[in-house]
């Protein structure tokens, strides 16, 4: 736009949409909705070996009102379903959901009376992570995919 010429090199111009999405994708505040086995790998991902802080998502908020990514970690059963729905509804926009592990994605091998077969029957999901439980590398990959998705989003 020529602003750099006018003000010198201390200025950077960008599109509003690009800048806001860039800021959002590197500062996820996540809400870990941890129920089951996948929580162990979730702990590993947050520890220093895999270090999710490199991607700017290391800060868990245990209040849904302050979080913008909901990690559903583990099996969700019929008794838990209303709780998950309520937590999701309490989050403010913009919000994203990561389905962590195969139980959250499809119910996994718990195909019986107690388990909901996939949280996408309750809430919309942005990224699915396969694995029972997924390895930390897979979690980081999913996080990068979510960042790419956020970068492409439209603000209006």
């Amino acid at each position: 736009m020529g602003l750099e010429k006018a003000f010198g090199e201390s200025w950077v111009t960008s599109k509003m949409e690009f800048a806001i999405n860039w800021a959002r994708k590197f500062s996820f505040f996540n809400y870990p909705f941890v129920t089951a086995c996948c929580g162990m790998e979730f702990m590993s991902t947050f520890a220093s070996t895999y270090d999710i802080a490199r991607f700017g998502a290391e800060f868990p908020r245990f209040s849904p009102r302050q979080a913008d990514v909901l990690f559903v970690v583990g099996t969700v059963n019929q008794k838990m379903a209303p709780v998950l729905k309520r937590v999701y509804e309490q989050m403010i926009e913009p919000k994203w959901v990561v389905s962590f592990g195969v139980c959250a994605t499809s119910g996994g091998f718990y195909d019986n009376y107690a388990v909901v077969d996939g949280i996408d029957k309750i809430i919309p999901v942005d990224v699915y992570i396969p694995g029972c439980p997924p390895r930390p590398q897979a979690v980081l990959d999913a996080l990068v995919k979510l960042q790419q998705k956020v970068q492409k989003e439209k603000l209006v």
């Binding site: 129920t35 099996t75 019986n112 009376y113």
Partner: peptide, 11 residues
């Protein structure tokens, strides 16, 4: 309790 009942025994 019961928020993680997954029907292990029935399965």
């Amino acid at each position: 309790i019961g928020y993680l009942h997954r029907g292990f025994e029935k399965t």
